[in-house]
Design a binder for these strands. Structure first.
Lengths: 239, 239
DNA sequence: TCTGCAGATTAGGCTAATCTAATCTGGACG
DNA sequence: CGTCCAGATTAGATTAGCCTAATCTGCAGA
């Protein structure tokens, strides 16, 4: 009965795409996404999820362990990553080309991601220079369906002397986002942990090209998520 | 029972938007759009149209005269023009900013027009300089829901000496479209009818800024739809 | 005037997705 | 080892759209 999805089958419905995305996000950390978590994320009733889960596992997009939860199959994962690519490229395009701000952009992308063609997404990606991160610093999956593994450290946890690239600001609070922005702390910035006081004291960081220093309380330092920068970057020549 | 639509009601569904657009196009010439014409345009079976017509007239978006056809109510007309504005701005944006060609653009706009927000459309319109015509030369309704009345003449019918602005090329044939493009005959060009041979002979036109002349057989002349240009343009200061 | 037929409508079903209410179950805890 | 309950599932109804098959109606032509 596993009606494995074949190329040329009818496209997934908007609903199905939303379920797959939700399952991707919920199961990215632990192994299984639970019915009630999916229901909460999509704002539907739990029985609606049970029904959809049945259909999705019949088409082979997910694996369902009754009373435990679901996981994406390789097919489902591919479909979810395609949606995430669309979403993130749309967010980036709207902010960069049409002057949207970070706040307004999510809802718009949420609707458009179901309507755009692959061609349009690739044209947008092209006009943005094949970007690798969205405006929130999240990695954009490739058209082939690969996504960079996060492996992020907060500045509060990074070793003194570590060379880091700021990748995400872990808050939605717009006052804080603005504050970080005034300090030049936006995704993409390169920095080094210059010093850290023990016992929850502040962390001092240096911005790498300029050498400017910033002092951050432990609470703020915990919000800045970074990737370690290899000593010698081996040439990615994009933007 | 006429549950007249109020602001703040749920948005129209994709289907409803498509029906309204189809009815607008079909009733723009004669008064009524017939069930079977709507069915043909939307590629659905006639009974599906009857069902939708019932729902639409209950919400006051159309007037239905049984066995005769339907017309848009003022509400329905407003909704239809909103969709047409979206469609035409999307087509223009995709061709101008993302390098789509005339052919590829229609299907993309057809899907996106249901998903974009009013805000996005106005941002696109802004970045295009509040354009008045789409890439096919069709007028773009304003955000307030007004549309310029066509009143177009083919070059074959225009009086000798008439000053015209080329507005549409009345064919989908891409060889012909390319030919006209090589002759500089694309929407927006200003021209004058310089001479016409009687008995289905050719028409000679002069392109107005350059003075270049083109000779067109009657068949081709019939494809070029123009608006008459008033002797003294009274200042519209856009592009 | 009558008749026939093209085109419109009604009748009746199907599917996808949702909901509420009822029922089931796995695992935590006494 | 048994009970209980949070969370999952099943049951059954609803809605929007679509379909085919059957029926109806206005009008064109004899």
């Amino acid at each position: 009965m596993h009606a494995t999805l074949r190329p040329g089958d009818p496209p997934l419905s908007r609903s199905v795409e939303d379920y797959l995305k939700a399952i991707y996000h919920l199961s990215s950390q632990g192994g299984f996404a639970s019915t009630s978590d999916i229901a909460a994320m999509l704002e539907v009733a739990p029985p609606s999820v049970s029904g959809m889960v049945k259909r999705l596992s019949e088409t082979g997009l997910i694996e369902h362990v009754p009373y435990r939860g679901v996981q994406l199959s390789p097919q489902g994962r591919r479909a979810a990553l395609r949606m995430i690519r669309r979403h993130r490229i749309l967010e980036l395009y709207l902010t960069q080309q049409l002057d949207y701000d970070w706040d307004g952009v999510h809802a718009e992308a949420e609707r458009l991601e179901h309507a755009v063609s692959d061609e349009l997404i690739e044209r947008m990606a092209g006009s943005l220079g094949q970007p690798r991160y969205d405006p929130h610093g999240d990695p954009i999956p490739t058209a082939a369906g690969e996504i960079e593994e996060a492996d992020l450290v907060t500045i509060a946890d990074a070793a003194v002397g570590a060379k880091l690239e700021l990748r995400q600001v872990g808050t939605q609070d717009s006052a804080r986002l603005r504050y970080f922005a005034t300090q030049g702390l936006t995704p993409g910035v390169l920095l080094t942990v210059a010093d850290r006081q023990p016992f929850n004291g502040p962390t001092t960081i240096a911005l790498v090209p300029s050498g400017d220093r910033r002092v951050l309380g432990r609470e703020l330092a915990r919000l800045l998520l970074c990737s370690e920068v290899p000593v010698q970057e081996h040439g990615h020549a994009d933007r």
